[in-house]
Structure formats: structure tokens, C-alpha cells
Design a protein around this nucleic acid. Sequence first.
DNA 1: AATGAATGAGTGTTCATTCAT
DNA 2: CATGAATGAACACTCATTCAT
Lengths: 205, 205, 205, 205
Amino acid sequence: MKTEQRRLPRGIREQLMIDAAVAAFSRGDYHTVRVEEIAEAAGTSKPTMYHYLGSKEGIFNACVRRESERLVEVLRAAVHDPGAPGGDDPLRRGFRAFFGFVVAHRGSWTVLYRRAAAGPAAAAVGGARERVLAEVTELITTCGELPEGTRERDAALLARIAVSTADAFADWLLDHPEESPDTLADHVAALTWAHLEMRGAPAGA
Amino acid sequence: MKTEQRRLPRGIREQLMIDAAVAAFSRGDYHTVRVEEIAEAAGTSKPTMYHYLGSKEGIFNACVRRESERLVEVLRAAVHDPGAPGGDDPLRRGFRAFFGFVVAHRGSWTVLYRRAAAGPAAAAVGGARERVLAEVTELITTCGELPEGTRERDAALLARIAVSTADAFADWLLDHPEESPDTLADHVAALTWAHLEMRGAPAGA
Amino acid sequence: MKTEQRRLPRGIREQLMIDAAVAAFSRGDYHTVRVEEIAEAAGTSKPTMYHYLGSKEGIFNACVRRESERLVEVLRAAVHDPGAPGGDDPLRRGFRAFFGFVVAHRGSWTVLYRRAAAGPAAAAVGGARERVLAEVTELITTCGELPEGTRERDAALLARIAVSTADAFADWLLDHPEESPDTLADHVAALTWAHLEMRGAPAGA
Amino acid sequence: MKTEQRRLPRGIREQLMIDAAVAAFSRGDYHTVRVEEIAEAAGTSKPTMYHYLGSKEGIFNACVRRESERLVEVLRAAVHDPGAPGGDDPLRRGFRAFFGFVVAHRGSWTVLYRRAAAGPAAAAVGGARERVLAEVTELITTCGELPEGTRERDAALLARIAVSTADAFADWLLDHPEESPDTLADHVAALTWAHLEMRGAPAGA
DNA sequence: AATGAATGAGTGTTCATTCAT
DNA sequence: CATGAATGAACACTCATTCAT
């Protein structure tokens, strides 16, 4: 581990800094991360961090910029390259790349999507989310007419999708006040039914 | 405005405190909110806050607990009460209640789902998300065989759903390492195709 | 010395703070003074200083405001009160009050006139000033026609006046570009001659 | 602008450094000026500055030394050269040289006299000084028996002289504790009266 | 019961200064 | 000789938390 070189050229050091920062920011939320902690992880010191990235916010911005660019590049490459894994369907290739990225670079994704990952708030929020999730899962499960082959696992997965979707729609509603929540709710319900009916041939196009 | 009573019974005071705290925590993230700010908004003083809720974390926990209970109650009531809005389908009634809650109590939902809503990080993250969203939207749009009646709006909405779903699955993957990202990716692609084909009769079951 | 009370009312504490700050700022220049040092001298802590005076600049401003108000009050009182020391001449009464204040509250005056009193720069500046002063003193002394009764002391005093006056005029020139430096120079020379000739009856009107 | 030569002989480089330093130190006070800022203005780098001048204090000392020597030289030359502008009176020639220097090299003079020229303190001090000056001006104006031809301008100018003189005397008092403030006060008052009576033939001896 | 007063502990940021190239 | 790289040491400022009234 002591391979770290002193006196690295600026470009390299900056990349090391951003590496360390992404790791740190994906562990705790913005205020929980101390700049010094990032500096140490990057094998350098606080003043050098400030010299290169300007401020804590600058450090964070550098992370978000670099990681989002990486993700977009990966996505584009997969979609436009018919030889990429996933077969003929560009949509499927895209999602494969997307998921591959999220799994391979969990830290990057966490930074980009920045749900409270740690900190004093995380525990409480985590618990509450689980309760809500359990409730929705039960709602889906006890709905009765679960198609053949739909197991617990599927219900839990669907609940997560439903809640995430609702969350996405909440954002959407904010930006598009002309939409009615009821219509969207019905829509999500319909989608969920569709998913339930589709279970069994998940990987088929 | 000076209607605020001194010497309120403990229960009431606590509710006022939690009201103020939910509002505050939904505006900025945990560390951005100062206890004093909540105390002022609740018409009381810092020491009283500590007397009642114990600590900053205690305040936050109280928020999360109360709001998640409210949400769960609302959900349960709608699902079990056939007379609730949404018709015969309990699933649809549930989602109506869910969306209604999210829209009516945005603050509560924000606290529960706690994606970084403000603070120095929010701007950067917001921008990056938009870029990713744009990329996925384009991916869906230029996929070619968009069914009749699928307009721009639908693509944008689907992109949000897809990203949210991927986000949910990323969590899922963390908890279930036996799952393969590729399978999930294919699954999301399949779901998206299903959505695309379903467009046109969104509110129909 | 341990008479310092804990839990003083805000007004009192603020005055103690300003007292300590004036003393500190009159010893070193703005950047040399540490806020904590002032807090300790005032028998309190840094956060309380910030709570009451807002910032380091706020602390400094409070000093300048209070002291300049005091000085102006003292001046006004002496001028308008014919019974104040100095006799019939309000001008003389005013200067007596002025000098009295400067001598009694050296710190206040230093803060108000803020010539570099300490710090790493002070030594060098002090030395240079002395050299300039010596030069001007010699100029006055060797001018030749020193009137009777003009001793070394007077020359040194006059040199100081001359340099201070020149300094004042330099400011004046900045604000009034229509003035010619040569005219002002001649004027100062004339004044100095007048002073030289007046020596011997210094206290007479 | 890119005429700056690399590889300049040491002497020249040093002069460029001091030029830049004088300019910088005359804008802000000692602590406000960053060494890097001087280095850039001098067309060189920080380590070179340290190589030549040793330390920040060394840089500052070099400024003060060079500028005070210049001023002293100019003064001496004018006094001893009967052909210098100002006529027969060496005193007048001296002051002309002095004022000329101050006006032509404001930066040098500021460094030498180093009243806080900028920084967070300057604004407050400036305001307070103005208030004091206004007070003294009023005192002089409303003194009543202003001689013929004494206009507002003269009162303002006299007030500046009076305050500067008092300032000089305050220093004097520090060094000569045997003097009485009252005597000096009376003296300044007398001088001011003399000035008032002299107005009208300012440039005359 | 309720609060004005007070602070310990910690963080972002800056800058003079020094190596190693 | 000249400089890009790097840092130790300080300092302003903030905030959760607690007494004493």
C-alpha cells in the first residue's frame, strides 16, 4: 500500500483525489465527510486538495461531474455498439450497461443518486422505508389474485419498483402541475398488474 | 400570528415541534437544519426542544416515526375500505392513497425518502441526474419502434420510471448478491417495452 | 481579579467584550489579534463573542463605533461648557479635552487612528519613520536662522508636526485633485516658519 | 507584455520584486498581502522570492528600506541644491521635494506611513475618522471669530492639520512623559489660531 | 415549565514556507 | 537558477448541548 508516490503530476493527483472523494461521499452524506479524511485517503494533505479543487463543494462537484460523464459514456457506447452485450435490442444493451455500471461502481451511483447513505439520519429513514416497503409488499401480496409462479421475492421486488416509481412520479408532478395524482396512481396500479402478469417470462423481450 | 399560546400541554407542544421539524428537514438535509431554527418555527426555545425530544437525532426520529405511521395508516385504511376512492381494485385504491399522501404532504415524503433536497450538494446532483435522465430518455426515444400514440411526454416519464427502477434494483442487488445484474437489466428492458406497448390505455386495468 | 461574574446580562457582557477588544486591537493590528484572545480577556468564550457581535469585523466595528462616539461626546461637552478646563477660548477647551482623551484612553485613540502599532511590519516602519523624522529635524535645525529660545526639543516637535501635516495634506490631495502639491508645500513651509517664530510664547493665544 | 525576460541578473530581479511588493503593500495591510500575489506581479515564483529576500518580513523590510532611502535622498538633494525648485528658502525647497515625492510615489509613502489603507478594518476606521474630523471642523468653524477670507475649505484643512498634529503629539507624549497634555493642548490651540490669522497670504513667508 | 446565557468540540479554509526536480 | 508540488500550523466561524434562573 505504500506504493503511493510523492510528487505526482497534477493530473494524476487530481484523479486520486476524486477517487478518494467518491468513496467518501458514497459512505456518508456531504456534511459527514471531512475534507481531511479525503485528503488522507488520497495520500495527500488538505491544503493540496484546496489548491487543486478549490473548496469542499468543488471537490464534490468534481466527483459528480466525472462520474456522471463516465456513466453517460458507458451508456452511449453500449447503445450504439451492436456488438455490446445484450443482443440486438439497444434498449436491453443500454440497461445492461447501466446496471453493470451501477453494480461495478456502486460508489459512483450512490454519489449521483445521493439518497442518504449514512449519517445519524440514515438509520431512522432506513427503518421507516422498510416499514413502508413492508406495507406495500403486503398490499401487493394480499391483493389476492397473484398469478402462478409469483413468489414472495417477486412481490418484494415489485413493491420496491412501485415505491420508486411513485417517488419518480412525485418529482414529475412537481414539474408538471397539470397532471393529476389520481391518474398517475391508476397508472402505477395498472403497471403493477402488468408486471404481475408478466412474471414468469422476465428475460424474454 | 401571536395566537401561539404559552403554557401549552406537552402533547400539543410536541406536535407543533414535530410539525416545524418536518418542514425544516424537508427543506435542507439533516446537517443543514439548526435546532434553533426549528425551535423558533415551533414558537418555543432550544432548551424546551431538548427537554421534550432529547436531542437533534431524537427530533429527527420523531419526525420519521410520526410521518411513516401516518402514511402507513392512510395506506391501510384505503386498501381495507372498499368505499375509498379508486373503485373495486384494492391495489388501485392503495396507490391512490399513496399518491395522494405524497402530493398532499410533500414535506413528509421528502423526509421519509430523504434524497438530498437542498444544501451545496443538491445543485450538482440535480444537474447530473438531469443529464443521465436526458440520456435515458433519448435512448428510449431513439429506440425506433415507438408504438403509436407514444409522445415525448411518455418517453420522459418512462425514463424516470426506468431510472427509479434501476435504483430500486441496485438496492435489491445489495441485499441479494445471488441475483445477476444482467438478468435484472433484461428484466427492466422487458418492463419498459411492456410499458411502451401499454401506452394508450394508461388508466385501464 | 476573579471578581468576574458568570451569567452577566447581555448589555454588560458586550461592554466587557468591547473593552477587551479595544485593548487588543490597540496592541496589534487587525489580523494579529485572535478572537479567542479577546474572548478570554473579556472573561467569556469565542462562541459568545460571535453570538453577540456577529463576526471579527463586527467586533472591530463595535470598538470603533463606541470609542469614536465617546471622543465626540467629550469634545462637544468641553466646547459647549464654558466651565470646562481651558478658560474662555472654546478652541483651547476643545483641544484640552481632545488631548486629555487621547492620553487617558490611548488604546481608543490607537484603534481610531490605527497606525500600525505592532506586528511584524511595525518595527521596520518605525525605523524608517525615525530616519525620515531625523532628516526633517535636521533640515529644520540646520535651516540656520532658528529664533532665540528654539531648542532641539522644539525642532524635533516641529519636525513631527511637519510630517504629520504633510501626511494630512497627502490625504487632502487625494480628495481634492485640483490642489497643487507645490502650493501646499509652500504653505506648510510658511506654517513651519510661523511656528518657529512663535516659539517662546507657546501657551499665549 | 511578455517582454519580461527570464534569467534576469539578480539585481534587476530584486528591484522588480520590490516594485511589485511596494505596490501590493500599499494596497492592503501586511497580512492581507499574499507572497504569491507579489511573486506573480513581479513575473516570478514564490520560491525565487524566498531565495532572494528570505521571508515575507524580509520582503517588507526591503520595501521600507528602499523607499525610505529614496525619500531621504530626494529631501537631501533638494535642501542642499540651491537650484532646486522652491527658491532661496531651503525649508521650502525641502517641503516641495517632500510633497512631490509623496504625490508622485503615493505607494511608497503609504508603505512608509502605513496607516491601515485597506482590509476589513479600514472602512470602519475611515468612517470614525470622518466623524471626528467633522466634529473638529465644526469646532473651528463655529469658533466664531473666523478672520476675513477664511472659507469652509480652510476650516476643513485646518481641522486635518489639528488632528494630525494632535496625533503627532500623542506619540511625542509617549516618548516624553514629562510633558503635560494640557500644555501641548494649549500649544496646538495657539498654533491653530496663528494659522487662522495667517490665512490670506498662505504662500507668503 | 420555560429560557437567556454560555461553551466544548470540530470544520472549512488560508498562507508562509520548503523540497525535489 | 527556477519552479511545480506539497504541507504544518493557524484561525474564523458554527452548532449541539447544558446550566442557572
